[in-house]
Nucleic acid binder design. Structure first.
Ligand SMILES: [Mn+2]
Ligand SMILES: [Mn+2]
Ligand SMILES: [Mn+2]
Ligand SMILES: [Mn+2]
Lengths: 219, 219
DNA sequence: ATTAATTTTTAGTCTAGCCTAAAAATTTTA
DNA sequence: TAAAATTTTTAGGCTAGACTAAAAATTAAT
């Protein structure tokens, strides 16, 4: 049996949750991202465990197996390559591509993915600065850090975002924060951790800590 | 509720069957193309009839309603545009694209289809010479006729195929029959209706009636 | 015009993937 | 450390879309 869209989506979401923690992933966390109820998640975890894609013990949370991670990385690769296609070739904005890529990531053809990769000139990152796994599932090491962690007075380049919700991306665009911009923190306000930020040498503007946490820079 | 892949496939297949007849389409004919059993088709026809996409009376066969035909034409449009993309931009051969387009045709984004259409320079036909419906569902009138119907001695240009199975397309390639080739029938053998054919001025070669029926030319 | 063959529909089942409500386990709080 | 709150699982149910086997309708052949 071939893998289903539902299974692919679960694996991808477990992968995403695993990126930001070394703990086992909870049923509830998965339920929130898949937009399903916890009971449905439990069901699916049992099935995927039987298939050997995850290591799951009830009440103990779940982790991807090696096979599961490979599958997840392949879907992530497709998702991000298609996003590059949509932005670079089809002229979409970076806040418009997520839903379409969510569908395109399930297209099944290894040859197509390779040809697409070549057509796009083997991009290392997607339009949000996220790294694109190669054919073998290896991620390029990018060394990106959240803007919120950059010391005052040092300059860095905006190279990615830690989130790709449309509202967030649209806010960045409004603030003139786009990929490649030169950033320097001039001040951090102790009260709310908001940040005074110089963008491309212009007079500083104020952004929230929430934004600063989700903007990725390279020094 | 959004339309499902299964429903889209049924509509597209009923459309395809309707192209070559004005009769109502039989349950069995649909079953053969969808690769399902007749009982499953009956089930689906009832459901699609309730949704107003087909006119169906049991034992009497089925026809697309106006809405149903619009949906079908939209899927055909997407299928054929994606085929052009795969051949012209991704470098696939014309016998390799059908299965992938079968998946891509279900991607839901009107904007994407329009952008793709523009990206491909508004093609009028797909890699098999089949007409691509426009946004409104109108098909360009191409005036293609089967090679088998061309009179002896007259010349025509190969502009399409009436079938796109991989074996057939590969045979054409082997026979050096590709889109754009200049064709002239020099002889038709009464015994088996096989055809002596001059391709681009070369010495005549023999092709079967079966092939001649499925090659489309414009005079 | 019957009978036989074929086609289509009905009836009953199955699986995937979801749901709600209730029970059980775990974690937090007092 | 016992009670309360939260999380997770179980139990039972639902729909979409398939299936098989049997019945009914239509079509073809005597
Ligand atoms: Mn998806
Ligand atoms: Mn992305
Ligand atoms: Mn399809
Ligand atoms: Mn085609």
């Amino acid at each position: 049996m071939a893998i289903s869209f539902a299974e692919e989506n679960y694996l991808k979401i477990i992968y995403r949750l695993s990126e930001s923690t070394s703990d086992d992933i909870s049923t509830n966390a998965i339920a929130e991202l898949t937009q399903n109820k916890a009971a449905s998640v439990t069901d699916m975890l049992r099935k995927m465990s039987d298939k050997g894609w995850v290591n799951y013990q009830k009440y103990q949370g779940v982790r991807l197996s090696e096979t599961g991670e490979k599958i997840a990385l392949d879907i992530v690769r497709k998702h991000r390559l298609w996003e590059v296609f949509l932005v670079n070739k089809m002229g979409f904005n970076w806040d418009e591509v997520h839903e379409i890529a969510e569908q395109l990531e399930h297209i099944e053809s290894e040859v197509l993915v390779d040809k697409l990769d070549a057509f796009l000139d083997y991009p290392r990152t997607d339009p949000h600065g996220d790294p694109i796994p190669n054919k073998k599932g290896e991620l390029p090491q990018l060394g990106y850090i959240p803007l919120a962690n950059m010391p005052i007075g040092k300059a860095g380049k905006l190279v990615g975002v830690a989130q790709d919700s449309a509202v967030f991306l649209q806010l960045l665009t409004k603030l003139n924060l786009k990929l490649g911009a030169n950033l320097e923190i001039t001040e951090i306000n102790a009260f709310d951790l908001s940040v005074s930020l110089r963008i491309d040498g212009n007079p500083p503007v104020l952004i929230s800590h929430e934004v600063a946490k989700n903007v990725l820079i390279k020094r």
